[in-house]
């Protein structure tokens, strides 16, 4: 009996809770470490970025106004779904030439990381909110509030772990985001979209685009409806470009280039706070 012909997967993008192809209909080849074709990925255009920002913006209001408890549950659900489908991610990482042991480490760390941030959603205002003892007859308190739409530019290395490590704190705080996935190995990140789809993350809260940064980073960093940028590209020229474009509408920018994506250092609430505003409310105290 002849070997069964395997059904190959078509990798698309994840935008607005759907899996569209790039509007440009362009693709590019994803190869493993030895140069062998694995799959074609969408080569997204600036128009794909534009559409993703629109959907992220429309999802923001609903997501940010959900209860913190609910957001925590949704994040936890992501971890559950990841755990259930981890074989798929192991396979995809190994396809790209990553050793089984390393792939396992990456997937497990990613799952645990989502759980870490899931637990912060309903604690961040308690730990970082304040009641301020003003001198006048007013009650005054400050609490963190989501910044808005965040553009995430993921690095090449540890495509799944880095992407999840960047998405989790951003959405834990109530933001919506557009992730530009690793150029060389976006496949597990696209598959992560399927996990998001199957968990209870509302459509548009996380959007995943693939393609060349040289074609998308400019658009997302200059887009006036993006409030913040979270970039893990260490190249200085790239950094400068991001910062300069950020100034168009006073975006908050965070350049995050850890040496070690596995480190527990990544698990901290300050990363959530980078994408939160402090809102201070005053009210008189009297009869």
């Amino acid at each position: 009996m002849a070997d069964r012909i395997e059904v190959l997967k078509t990798y698309k993008t994840y935008v607005g809770g759907k899996f569209p192809r790039s509007e440009s209909d362009r693709t590019y080849q994803i190869k493993d470490g030895k140069g062998k074709h694995i799959a074609n990925a969408c080569r997204c255009s600036r128009k794909d970025v534009r559409d993703a920002v629109v959907t992220a913006r429309s999802a923001f209001g609903g997501w940010s106004s959900r209860s913190a408890y609910n957001r925590g549950q949704v994040l936890y659900r992501i971890a559950e779904m990841l755990e259930g489908r981890k074989d798929q991610f192991l396979r995809e990482l190994q396809l790209a030439g990553i050793k089984e042991k390393d792939a396992k480490h990456e997937v497990h760390t990613a799952i645990d990381r989502v759980i870490y941030f899931a637990g912060w959603t309903d604690k961040i205002s308690q730990v970082f909110g304040t009641v301020n003892p003003v001198a006048s007859a007013h009650f005054n308190f400050s609490s963190p509030d989501a910044t808005g739409v965040v553009g995430i530019i993921a690095p090449e290395e540890y495509p799944l772990l880095s992407a999840i490590s960047m998405i989790a704190p951003v959405i834990a705080g109530g933001n919506s985001c557009i992730l530009l996935a690793s150029e060389t190995n976006p496949l597990p990140v696209v598959s992560f979209g399927e996990v998001l789809h199957a968990s209870d993350v509302p459509a548009g809260v996380v959007n995943i685009l693939t393609g060349y940064r040289s074609e998308t980073a400019e658009t997302i960093s200059s887009h006036k409806d993006v409030n913040a940028l979270f970039s893990s590209i260490s190249d200085n020229k790239f950094r400068k470009l991001i910062d300069e474009n950020a100034s168009i509408n006073v975006k908050r920018t965070e350049h995050y280039t850890p040496d070690d994506w596995y480190s527990d250092d990544h698990e901290n609430p300050y990363l959530v706070l980078k994408f939160m505003e402090t809102k201070t409310t005053w009210h008189p105290v009297g009869f």
Binding site: V134, A135, S136, S142, V250, T278, K279, T280, W282
Partner: peptide, 22 residues
């Protein structure tokens, strides 16, 4: 960043001040 309810333009050193967006 600041929300004054039933008052306006109050400032205090203990009270954080600053903006969203632009």
């Amino acid at each position: 960043g600041v929300m004054w309810s039933n008052t306006y333009n109050k400032f205090d050193p203990t009270s954080p001040f600053g903006g969203y967006k632009e």
